[in-house]
């Protein structure tokens, strides 16, 4: 069990507060800068513009640097940094449906990745861009967020189990 700077009793209260403050700062800067992961790849492909893409690339590079920094400062909070070395190259960080094998996780990364890119570019932005557009008064983007909200319990109640069953029936279980 990983231990962070804040003890458990305080952390359970800090979670909503810290994430709210972080979100406000990110939302403010995202509205100012037009930050978008999908838009970055689109603009680079269409016009060779690198401005928006630089945001997403900076996120990858600085998250590595950030985790490296806090791994040296608070190693107990970064138990499995650097993941591929501590846990194996084809094991994902938890978050996807559990109990599957490496081949299943590769399939479940590549197919959804492709489809997320395809759908989001047609709708003009990735999830954070849709949230920012909603705050700017775009009603269409608000329906995107509504769709995400409605899908949340549906995924937890049904889809997650179906995916595990499907992968296991293909012989791709753990």
């Amino acid at each position: 069990m990983a231990t962070g700077v804040l003890p458990m009793e305080i952390a359970v209260y800090a979670v909503p507060a810290v994430t709210l403050l972080l979100g406000i700062l990110i939302g403010y800067l995202a509205q100012r800068s037009g930050f978008c992961s999908i838009g970055g790849f689109r603009d680079y492909f269409l016009f060779r513009h690198t401005r928006i893409l630089s945001g997403y690339l900076a996120l990858i590079v600085f998250s590595f640097l950030g985790y490296l920094l806090f791994w040296t400062l608070t190693p107990a909070a970064m138990e499995h940094f650097f993941w591929a070395l501590t846990s194996g190259p084809f094991i994902p960080v938890p978050g996807a449906p559990a109990g599957l094998g490496p081949a299943a996780y590769i399939l479940l990364a590549v197919i959804p990745g492709f489809l997320v890119g395809f759908i989001c570019v047609l709708l003009g932005g990735c999830p954070i861009r849709q949230a920012v557009m909603t705050s700017e008064g775009n009603i269409r983007a608000a329906f995107f967020l509504l769709g995400m909200a409605v899908a949340s319990p549906v995924f937890a109640a049904f889809v997650s189990g179906w995916i595990v069953l499907l992968m296991k029936s293909l012989g791709l279980g753990a």
Partner: peptide, 25 residues
């Protein structure tokens, strides 16, 4: 403040800080 790369750096560093603070939960 208006450059996307600045926000990318901010999210990256603060996400690591957030994990360092909150992972006990």
């Amino acid at each position: 403040v208006r450059h996307p790369a600045f926000l990318g750096a901010v999210i990256g560093i603060l996400a690591a800080l957030s994990q360092s603070l909150l992972i006990s939960a």
